[in-house]
Computed example of a mutant assay.
Amino acid sequence: MKFIKRATTAILAAVMCLSFSSCGDTSYIAKAEGETIPAGLYILSQYAALAEAQQTSGYDSSLKNIWDNKLENKSLKNWVNDRALELVKQYAEVEKEFKAEGLELDEDTIKEVDNTVESNWASVESLYTAIGVAKESYRLYLLNQQKYYEIFDAYYGEGGKEEISDDSLTAHYQENYAQFKAISFSKTDSAGKDLDASALVELKNKADQYLERAKAGEDFDELIAQRKKEISTDTSDTEEEEDQEVNNMIMIKKDEASWYVSNKLSNAVFEEAEIGEPILLSDDNAYYVVLRYNVTDDEETYQKMRQSVLLDLKQDDFDEMLMTNAKSLDFTLNESAAKRYDPKKIEKEQKKAAQAQS
């Protein structure tokens, strides 16, 4: 069973169902195809939409009040609510198409969802409670995510209606992903202070020496180990690494931020580094002797990443199809609920939770 998490899944796990009563029944956000959708799915979608907005071009994170942002000529609040409603409709469409395709989640998948709910709940219950979330709605959302991927595979996976060939997947993988190893030469000292001009020249000379050794065919992993010994202040760390196999391979995706690699270095790897040819690259932080590898040579990693590559290739098309199909849903919005739930509360409770943890 493939339990796949999109980048937003970890974020979405932080909120769920809210059921209040007021002048209207606001315990549900809509009715679609005869099924009632809990209000928690709308709150969940607001949370996801807010996270999406913060990664959207035009969003200004420097504003003291984030709600002063405008996206696509809309206030941030309206943008978030509109996007949240789209996601609720996608939820409903997934439920509809899953039934129409005659699909069922297997016992292992359901068990894994239940285990995920239980394992996450204890650590985030205080935040959920502050927002007014319910565990069962969290479960409904995760089950819907699994149904999403089952339908996706029914379209694009092996034997699917629009099956993507291995050749197409491999070509996309080679074009958009890169594997490399790097020997790093930091432009700051041990205290984090920038090196002066003369020290930078000396550092560049050291990097050039390693580059020539790499070009001469010395084992790249051994060169990495030697460089670590040169700069290490804790010999126990290097001795421990010598006793175990260290995987120095780094995987990056084109035009996608990485925790480990700066955008400048990532772009240089794709644009300048030739497979099998050591090269000296740099960014604001360091010089790097880089050796790029052919991603398809690592069959084990490719098989692990195959589903992610397929999603990368076709997920936008799939989401667009779902949204197009959702236009024909028998869908009735609960206006009272839509007006009641304010995404500003989500942001407020996020701040409280962050302050409590600091």
Rank of each mutant, 00 (worst) to 15 (best):
E272P: 00
G159K: 12
V261W: 13
K161V: 11
F185V: 03
A268G: 04
I250Y: 06
Q146W: 04
L223C: 01
N176D: 08
Y260I: 11
I183E: 06
F152G: 06
A273E: 03
E162A: 09
E271D: 15
A216R: 00
S198R: 07
K187D: 03
T233R: 15
K147C: 02
S258P: 10
D255S: 10
G159H: 03
A214T: 00
N263M: 06
V201P: 01
K181I: 05
E158R: 10
E271C: 02
S168P: 05
V269M: 09
S236T: 13
W259S: 14
I164N: 00
E218I: 05
D189A: 07
L265H: 00
N248H: 15
R227G: 02
K254F: 07
V246T: 05
N263V: 00
L169A: 05
A182R: 02
Q146H: 14
E271A: 15
S236H: 06
N248A: 11
S258H: 14
N247D: 15
A225H: 07
A197N: 08
S190V: 13
A273I: 06
D237R: 14
Y155M: 10
V261P: 04
T188D: 06
N176S: 09
S266A: 15
L169F: 05
A273G: 10
E256D: 02
D208M: 14
K161G: 04
I164R: 10
K161I: 12
M249Q: 09
T170K: 15
M249S: 10
S165D: 09
A257C: 03
S198E: 15
I231N: 01
I164E: 01
I231L: 12
K161Y: 09
S258D: 14
Y148G: 07
Y210W: 07
K228S: 01
S258Y: 14
G157F: 13
T238F: 06
K206Y: 10
K204I: 09
A171K: 15
E272C: 09
K229I: 06
Q226N: 08
K187P: 04
S186H: 03
R227L: 00
I164M: 08
I224N: 04
V246Y: 01
S266T: 12
K187V: 03
G160S: 04
N267K: 15
Y149H: 14
A178N: 12
I183V: 12
K228E: 13
L265Y: 02
D234F: 07
E202T: 15
E239C: 04
T188E: 08
S186V: 07
S232Q: 02
D208Q: 15
A216C: 01
G217M: 05
D194G: 04
K187M: 03
A214K: 02
D166Y: 09
Y156H: 04
A257K: 15
N248K: 00
F220D: 00
K253V: 13
D208Y: 14
G217Q: 10
I252R: 11
D189C: 06
E212Q: 13
A207W: 01
Q174H: 13
E230C: 02
E222L: 11
E163I: 06
Y155N: 11
T188A: 10
R227K: 14
K206G: 00
N248W: 12
E212N: 11
A191V: 02
E163H: 02
E239Y: 08
Y177D: 06
E150M: 12
L211F: 06
R213G: 03
